[in-house]
Design a protein around this nucleic acid. Structure first.
Length: 410
DNA sequence: TGTCCACTGGAAGGGAGGGCTT
DNA sequence: AAGCCCTCCCTTCCAGTGGACA
């Protein structure tokens, strides 16, 4: 009997069993074009194997230049080599997720403390207490601790350099154990604002990962494609195209891999037998749109209201609006759906956040006697974004709302 | 040259919400 | 139960400011 699934069964497969190989989180056994960097970091970290403290390292480089992958790879290797001696304890943490003082200490603590009963609660204790427990625990274990703080700039901008200061100082107070820090950042400048003591401690060794060029991206994609795809399912031009498109985007390998994977998934879903350049172009669009809609969907309701105010202003033909324009529209919207109205000061912050997310473009501009304010423009597709906002439970009453347009009666 | 507009963005602090400790 | 702690979201207050205009 015919089944709706038939076409999916009879068609040639595109992916091998190892489709996760194309996820950017997958760490391959070999990282093409990062040998030098890896060797250099390895030579620093190797000290740990003999029980000595490696220098702290700061690693800089744009997104998708293999910083995280290289460090994680080294962590894996270090632990493998160290299996017998058990000298080293490797800890990895992403500071975009864990971005408070308390959070960082708690997270490190819980990666060290094995028994469930003695875990550190996610709130309730004083930071000092967590610090003390952590330090005692670390010292008692008599090992070399390598703590990786990925996206360390996020932590710094959010919570200042207190944690970094304490962590980098902890080593002085340890008797048996040793601790070294590896910071990863895609922002080269953030250390300028740090306490000079912290800066010099963290940056005992510095490294910069250059962006990949198109050729290198091609090698990276090839390596993964060979493992992830069945033979002959990928058209010749596909990989070079993914590489070229991503090379334009600052050599982001993560993006290149996503593009290839999504192109293949589109082909698969469409029951096409081979992955073509057309699939790649579709994938590129999909990635861009998905990123925007994800960002918009996950906005807090108040920010959604602000964004909707901006869209409505744009609808009125006011596509270079000021904070005041946005705020007055916002007040009306908040009123309609019965939300409390935030102050203009707060809205200024929400506007800046939207700007940072790339959803809008806001720059401070002076209009002379007209005052000094932000000039705001929408930088995402209007209709799609509006659609997403209107899908929000809380914003539904605004679906058929039309802003009052300034009409001049003659 | 000085004025003055309409904000900007820093600082401080309140209070709610999570949870631990005694 | 009362007294802590930490974070998040906001408010209040306010000094500071780029540049058109008088």
């Amino acid at each position: 009997m015919e089944s709706i699934f038939d076409p999916y069964l009879t068609n040639r497969k595109i992916f091998t069993r190892n489709r996760q190989i194309l996820q950017s989180s997958y760490i391959p056994d070999e990282l093409p074009h990062r040998n030098e960097e890896i060797k250099q970091i390895a030579s620093i970290l190797a000290t740990a194997l003999h029980g000595d403290r490696p220098s702290n390292i700061m690693i800089f480089g744009k997104t998708g230049t293999g910083k995280t992958a290289s460090v994680k790879f080294l962590g894996k290797e270090l632990q493998r080599v160290d299996q017998k001696l058990q000298n080293v304890h490797f800890i990895y943490m992403n500071c975009e997720v864990v971005d408070t003082q308390y959070g960082v200490l708690q997270n490190i603590g819980n990666q060290i403390i094995a028994d469930f009963e003695h875990r550190i609660p996610f709130t309730g204790w004083s930071t000092e207490r967590v610090y003390n427990i952590l330090m005692n625990k670390i010292d008692e274990m008599d090992k070399v601790f390598i703590i990786v703080l990925d996206e360390i700039d996020k932590l710094f901008y959010k919570s200042g350099d207190d944690v970094l200061y304490h962590l980098s100082k902890m080593n002085d107070d340890l008797i048996k154990s040793k601790l070294s820090l590896v910071g990863i950042s895609n922002d080269l400048k953030f250390t300028e604002f740090m306490d000079p003591r912290v800066r010099s401690r963290l940056g005992e060794e510095k490294m910069v990962f250059p962006p990949y060029n198109a050729e290198q991206l091609r090698d990276i994609l090839m390596q993964r494609a060979n493992l992830a795809f069945e033979g002959g399912v990928v058209e010749d031009g596909v990989i070079p195209l993914c590489a070229a498109l991503s090379a334009q985007e600052m050599g982001d390998a993560r993006r290149a891999l996503d593009m290839l994977r999504i192109a293949a998934e589109l082909a698969e879903r469409n029951s096409d037998e081979i992955v073509t350049e057309a699939h790649v172009m579709k994938a590129k669009n999909k990635i861009e749109l998905d990123a925007i809609s994800e960002a918009v969907r996950t906005l807090p309701t108040q920010s959604k209201l602000v964004l909707l105010s901006i869209i409505l202003n744009d609808d009125k033909g006011n596509n270079h609006m000021t904070t005041c324009d946005v705020y007055s529209e916002y007040k009306q919207l908040a009123d309609i759906i019965g939300f409390s109205t935030l102050t203009q000061r707060r809205i200024t912050d929400l506007i800046s956040e939207l700007d940072m997310l790339g959803i809008i473009h806001a720059r401070v501009k002076s209009f002379g006697r007209g005052g000094r304010t932000k000039e705001i423009e929408l930088s995402v597709p209007k209709l799609e974004t509006k659609q997403i906002l209107e899908d929000d439970e809380d914003l539904r009453p605004l679906k058929y709302y039309r802003p009052v347009t300034q009409t001049t009666l003659i």
